[in-house]
Amino acid sequence: MMEILRPGLLTTVQDGGRMDYQAFGVPVCGAMDWISLAAANILAGNEWDTGALEITGMGPAIRFEQDCVFALAGADFSATLAGQPLAPNGAWLAHKDDVLEMGAAKGGFRTYLAVAGGLDIPKVMESQSTCLAAGFGGFEGRALKKGDRIGLREPQLWLKGLPQRMIDPLYDPDAPVRVVLGPQNEAFSQQGIETFFESEYKLGVQCDRMGCRLEGPSIALKEGRSPNILSDGIVMGSIQIPNGQPIVMMADRQTTGGYVKLGTVITADLPLMAQKRPGDTVRFEQVTVRQAQAARLYRQRKLKNLQGELDRFDRW
């Protein structure tokens, strides 16, 4: 078991997301940063999309009630275990009654705490992810609170490579965020599309797991075009522009939406959006679908290489 001594700003159980129920209006949810979730799980020796704790902005304090191996990957939360500082991306053995203390996020906004062997959280509709909007999945369908106790599925007492099981960051958080045009880019004027790709946008205060509201130069529609459309499917990364200002739809988005979408943040760069905090700026760069798919494959290869290295990493 792990006991939550202090929950932090927003700590929820998330995995690779709840697929196959969007036709019934069920949001996908899941990790905001799929690369960091995968990295934490690889460090912990788990499958990539195993449920982990997603930690946001201000970290929690957690007491381990038993010996177990756990891993962190994502932003730096100045974590300490039993008073000893931990690197932002690595795996460690916690002993019974050790306390993991985390502070404010630096160089990003989210990190993932994976426990080797997984969390003992039941699956709902085939996923451990918390659906905050509808109040199901994860731990009682909500963010963690002080006093919550989370069971561990198959806690491990050792992993190959410990205590040097660490990795470097897997992507450059300050790189431009790449975007594929569509599905409704034809609704915008050429000028509007140029504005979007040539300007800097700032994340507003309304940024959460549902979406990131951006502020910057207004993006013009074609003359006489309405920003409203008949609601259609939206994906993670869809860029809705209801009133000239973009909103990037994220993990907890509704399954459908009724505003024009200029483009979609590519899968490879969703983690860059997920790690931005209110007040940060972002620039977008246009790519083709083919380039986006190559970039996704590149990120996955990097994760596979990392897994291969850790699997070979045997100091014994």
């Binding site: 697929m19 969007q22 036709a23």
Partner: peptide, 23 residues
């Protein structure tokens, strides 16, 4: 093909690019 999401006048077709390319 992974998931089909119908709406008023469209269907959003989710696919796995590792199994089938865009083209």
């Amino acid at each position: 093909l992974r998931e089909l999401v119908p709406s008023y006048s469209a269907v959003c077709v989710h696919y796995d690019p590792e199994q089938i390319s865009y083209e």
